[in-house]
């Protein structure tokens, strides 16, 4: 009996002694993937070729300074069937590149290839732009019957859509739904909502929210990707936090943007049953020689004004 007791005690003691108690700094990071090229470029159909960014990754153990990550000596071109656009570095912003000369307009249903060369390093990516996107109508639905209460005025119908009575939307009243003419070649859709009146008050008001929660609300946000197969998309009220003018943009995405957004933990790619860091994953980068996003989209938007809910207007 005593032998067994000693054995138990010894195993127990050895087990406990073998266990280190505390973490050392930097232990919770993996093998560093620093100095990898990161491309950040999104083309919007019908708009001029945009400014793009080329940076490098940093070791997460070190203090991060975005200004130090910009690549300033790259040769960057974007080629399509219509020609070649050569980019030049923006001297005022490390890592930012601007199209040289007059920026050509991005053409729908066209393939573009980006190539960035930095010394011996070469980064490349391709995108095929989707067809044009048009919001057919935006309606407010009754939340019970799902019948249309009214239609909002589109920018195409009025230059001052924000002033239209139909576009004054009461917070939490009804369901806002966008109906689209789906874009040809779109892999999926994504929405963004931007509060334009930067000094406007919160419409969100709940005792269970702490000041820290309010501080975390941002005036711009984007949705996870959606298929939009039915051509109608609803705005969740939890995406709205502020009163005043809002722009609601709908993007028809190319495959790169769609794949990136649906796998990007920051965008909150879909799903449930996630915990313990399962959602923390490497986004799908369709980039050779680096990471990042070279994607394209067609976009349309609608504007409306959010009014506080009755009883919450003080």
């Amino acid at each position: 009996m005593l032998t067994f007791a000693r054995c138990l005690t010894s195993v127990l003691a050895c087990g406990l002694l073998a266990c280190s108690a505390e973490r050392k700094p930097g232990e919770l990071f993996g093998s560093a993937e620093s100095d990898v090229l990161v491309i950040d470029a999104q083309l919007l159909v019908g708009q001029p070729m945009p400014a793009i960014f080329l940076r490098r990754t940093a070791d997460p153990r070190e203090s991060y300074d975005l200004r130090m990550q910009g690549v300033i000596d790259a040769d960057i071109t974007i080629r399509s069937a219509d020609g070649l656009t050569r980019y030049t570095a923006d001297p005022d912003s490390a890592g930012r590149y601007l199209p040289g000369g007059t920026a050509p307009v991005v053409v729908p249903l066209t393939e573009y290839e980006l190539v960035a060369t930095v010394g011996q390093e070469r980064l490349s990516a391709r995108t095929r732009t989707p067809g044009p996107l048009r919001i057919r109508e935006v309606v407010v639905l009754d939340e019970q019957s799902l019948q249309v209460r009214r239609k909002l005025v589109l920018f195409a119908e009025s230059a001052d859509a924000f002033a239209a009575a139909a576009n004054q939307v009461v917070y939490l009243d009804g369901l806002l739904e966008t109906r689209l003419d789906t874009a040809a070649g779109a892999a999926g859709y994504q929405l963004s909502l931007a509060s334009l009146d930067l000094a406007s008050d919160f419409v969100i008001d709940a005792d269970f929210l702490e000041q820290d929660d309010y501080d975390d609300f941002e005036r711009q946000g984007s949705s996870p990707v959606i298929d939009g197969a039915e051509g109608n998309v609803r705005v969740p009220w939890f995406a709205v936090a502020f009163a005043g003018r809002h722009i609601w943009r709908t993007y028809a995405l190319d495959q790169n943007w769609y794949d990136f957004a649906r796998t990007d933990p920051e965008t909150g790619g879909g799903g449930f049953g996630q915990l313990a860091g399962d959602a923390f994953q490497r986004p799908h980068f369709a980039v050779q020689g680096g990471i990042g996003l070279f994607g394209s989209a067609a976009v349309d938007s609608v504007g409306f004004v959010v009014l506080p809910a009755p009883g919450n207007q003080d």
């Binding site: 993996g30 093998s31 940076r55 490098r56 990754t57 940093a58 997460p60 949705s223 993007y251």
Partner: peptide
């Protein structure tokens, strides 16, 4: 578990806000 191996910046493509 999945550790972080690098830090980088990309814009949210739908808002243009650097993240």
């Amino acid at each position: 578990y999945k550790p972080a191996s690098a830090r980088y910046t990309l814009r949210d493509p739908a808002t243009g806000v650097p993240q």
